[in-house]
Design a protein around this nucleic acid. Structure first.
Length: 387
DNA sequence: TGGGGTTAT
DNA sequence: ATAACCC
């Protein structure tokens, strides 16, 4: 009972997602690898995954939509929808036609402008940030929150009282109980520890669980390591993109690029930092599946300096740069057919102070993220649970 | 499929 | 600097 770990029931896909992201998650107790250092041997990671986020945002801004089947539309797709619509058979990423057919009463709102979604998304992250700085974003609608220190603190407070009075909510993992669904399947195979899973025959595992799940949990068993929730902080890039049926002339492309750029400049103004790199991405109609090409280059320093000033020359300079990138990718002397254009600002840097002085120490962005580890910076290799 | 975003190479 | 992969 010493080191309980709390979590809501784990859904395998979440751990899987983190593994795919290279974040190296663990969902099983690992008695074999427990590190007997410190007084905590497990971590508490909560995965906050907002359902039909865009639809929720729309219903908040227009409550009349709440009781109607609602879909958020981008081009010819219903990218997400509320529960009402889901009940009536509408699915994510459904063609508008099919959705209308399934659900004639479906109300559609255009969700191609992500501004409000982005703002709400960061509000959610900020809210979670009030509990701990260890909040990691994944897309607009997911956050991973490391509550280990908070839980530990709480347990210490309770220890002096009566620990038996503590109500455990959700699943409790420790060395004695692996309450995990997959773990139960594994138990039947005689696999009780991660080590046993690691050394278990892949072939037999695949036969028993199916190749997909088998390979998946085999990977989990190696855990790779125990990297922590990495605070996302400010975004590292801004981009605006638009897809379309056809763009086949340079003039047309230029016009679209100008539109995207204008939106981007506005956003960069608000952020305060300055991008040092621009990137242009395209998708050609010939590309069968997900396929983009991009060209990027540094932004000239004189352009960077004028970036927040509302100077029109900035726009002109950047368009010229982007068109060079464009011609670098597309042979404009030959016929071409594009279905997407995207402009991205990245390599964001804080503003340079004109003069160096004693205050610069405080004004320079520092990588102070390690301070959160504090006294708990020892490795916590044991268990990783999430939801 | 949209309109984004980060990480790996 | 570009591709690959995430939602």
């Amino acid at each position: 009972m010493r080191n309980p770990l709390w979590s809501r029931p784990t859904r395998g896909r979440l751990a899987a997602r983190r593994v795919r992201q290279g974040l190296r998650a663990f969902s099983l107790a690992v008695p074999d690898q427990a590190v007997p250092t410190g007084n905590i041997s497990s971590r508490v990671i909560v995965h906050v995954d907002l359902d039909c986020f865009y639809a929720q945002v729309e219903m908040i801004s227009n409550p009349e939509l709440k009781n109607k089947p609602l879909g958020v539309q981008q081009k010819s797709l219903v990218i997400t929808c509320n529960y009402e619509a889901r009940k009536l058979g509408v699915k994510k990423c459904m063609k508008v036609r099919d959705a209308k057919e399934k659900c004639p009463k479906l109300v559609l709102v255009n969700g191609e402008d992500l501004t409000r979604y982005r703002e709400m998304s960061y509000k959610v992250t900020e809210l979670l940030g009030e509990f701990t700085p260890l909040v990691e974003r994944l897309g607009f609608d997911e956050n991973f929150v490391d509550l280990t220190q908070i839980v530990e603190k709480r347990l210490q407070q309770l220890q002096s009282d009566d620990l038996s009075a503590v109500t455990m909510s959700g699943h409790v993992y420790n060395n004695q109980c692996i309450g995990y669904k997959t773990a139960k399947c594994l138990e039947a195979l005689g696999i009780h520890t991660v080590h046993e899973l690691q050394t278990f025959s892949s072939k037999i595992l695949e036969e028993e669980l199916g190749i997909s799940l088998a390979q998946h949990i085999k990977k989990l068993s190696f855990g790779e390591d125990n990297s922590s929730v990495i605070p996302s902080g400010q975004p590292q890039s801004f981009s605006e993109e638009e897809s379309f049926k056809k763009c086949s002339s340079e003039v047309e492309a230029k016009k679209k690029i100008e539109e995207l750029l204008a939106l981007l400049l506005h956003r960069v103004c608000q952020d305060g930092r300055k991008p040092h790199t621009v990137r242009l991405s395209i998708r050609r109609s010939s590309s069968k599946y997900y396929n983009r090409e991009s060209r990027q280059c540094p932004i000239p320093s004189h352009v960077i300096q004028k970036l927040g000033t509302g100077n029109c020359d900035v726009m002109t300079s950047l368009v010229n740069i982007l068109m060079k990138l464009f011609r670098n990718m597309v042979n404009v002397k030959m016929p071409f057919h594009l279905t997407l254009l995207s402009v991205c600002f990245c390599n964001l840097k804080a503003l340079n102070r004109a003069k160096k002085g004693p205050m610069d120490y405080y004004l320079t962005p520092s990588s102070s993220t390690t301070s959160h580890s504090g006294k708990h910076s020892f490795k916590m290799k044991d268990t990783y649970v999430e939801d």
